[in-house]
């Protein structure tokens, strides 16, 4: 009798342990490992200043990757985000340079709204081409990637587009360099965007629909879910996230060029996948994505601070990370 009771409790305990999804925990474990490794490599690394710096620099990719989490969870893919950053940023600066509104504060507000609308429309275009046009998302966004990039090159005539008005520059600067209660603004923005995204994905009807569509579009359709609308909205959310990243990017340099945001789409997708979201859709992990973005930036930082790996190898290391992350994910799936 005693032994059977023991068996029972052990069974329950084992089950509780199993309830923790290893795939959800793995990216955070990797992050902690990296932090420890970084501290061993260079004591300056673990300093609050350095870490805050890393987090700030990861903001663009992190925020774009949040949008990518929605698109990928719904079973699609958006390759155009890097080009979209350059395009929306160019439009925004050109708008501010046009001087249609004299008052700088008012002008900035209008420009922010303009960028948000522009980003959303770019996303909407991706969504409609994919759903209404019934073109594979890979191909559709490969096309718009070329279009957005090409338009940017044309707008900038191959050079740079620079924010001219010094008054505007002055009031816009804090959006990247400022801080709120000692926390750099980009970090605040990352946290805010992530919290909202997590709420939408886990706690709303729309979020449930995204996962259902990504998991099995037929089941979603038979459950009365408007599949194409759900997918299109995910692309719009992606566009919106790109716009938010642009809002942080423009005050940083006050300028864009045709090469802005090159390969960011790959970094964003890497962050999403490293964060534990399945590339084939059906499971989204917003906090994992943020963790993935940090990991990418941290690796670069550690390489800079250490002396034994050339920083020119950053791309190769990031490429290795995505492959290792997939291998780890797969082995965890097998075990569960």
């Amino acid at each position: 009798m005693d032994t059977s009771v023991n068996e029972e409790t052990r069974d329950v305990r084992r089950r509780n342990w199993r309830d923790i999804d290893l795939r959800a925990v793995a990216p955070f474990a990797a992050l902690i490992l990296l932090l420890i490794l970084g501290a061993l490599v260079n004591p300056n690394f673990i300093g609050l200043n350095n870490l805050a710096n890393v987090a700030t620099r990861s903001a663009f990719i992190a925020i774009i990757a949040i949008g990518a989490t929605f698109v990928i969870s719904s079973g699609d893919l958006d390759l155009s985000v890097g080009a979209m950053v350059a395009f929306v940023a160019s439009l925004m600066i050109l708008f501010m340079n046009s001087g249609v509104i004299a008052d700088p504060a008012l002008m900035l507000t209008a420009a922010v709204l303009f960028a948000v609308v522009a980003g959303s429309l770019c996303g909407l275009a991706n969504g409609l081409i994919t759903t209404v046009g019934r073109i594979e998302p890979f191909i559709a966004t490969l096309g718009t990637m070329g279009i957005y990039r090409g338009l940017t090159t044309w707008l900038s005539q191959g050079g740079a587009i620079t924010l001219k008005d010094p008054a505007l520059q002055e009031i816009y600067r804090p959006a990247y360099f400022g801080s709120i209660l000692g926390v750099p603004v980009p970090i605040v923005v990352i946290l805010a965007v992530t919290c909202i995204a997590a709420f939408i994905l886990y706690r709303t009807r729309y979020g449930r629909h995204v996962v259902a569509v990504g998991s099995n579009a037929d089941v979603a359709r038979y459950s009365g879910i408007p599949v194409n609308r759900v997918r299109t909205i995910a692309f719009v959310i992606q566009g919106l996230c790109v716009a938010i990243a642009v809002l942080l990017y423009v005050p940083r340099l006050g300028s864009t060029s045709a090469t802005t945001g090159i390969l960011w789409e790959l970094q964003a997708i890497t962050a999403v996948v490293v964060g534990g979201t399945a590339l084939k859709g059906g499971a989204g992990r917003v906090w994992g994505t943020i963790c993935g973005a940090f990991i990418l930036e941290l690796v670069g930082n550690i390489m800079l601070l250490s002396n034994f790996i050339s920083e020119y190898l950053i791309g190769a290391i990031q490429g290795t990370i995505i492959i290792v992350a997939m291998l780890v994910q797969r082995s965890l799936v097998r075990k569960s």
Partner: peptide, 18 residues
């Protein structure tokens, strides 16, 4: 299996999907 239930989701997510 292919049109009724999300096989990778838990019971609750399936039950309330519609």
């Amino acid at each position: 299996k292919s049109k009724g239930l999300l096989l990778n989701s838990r019971m609750t997510a399936n039950l309330t999907l519609q």
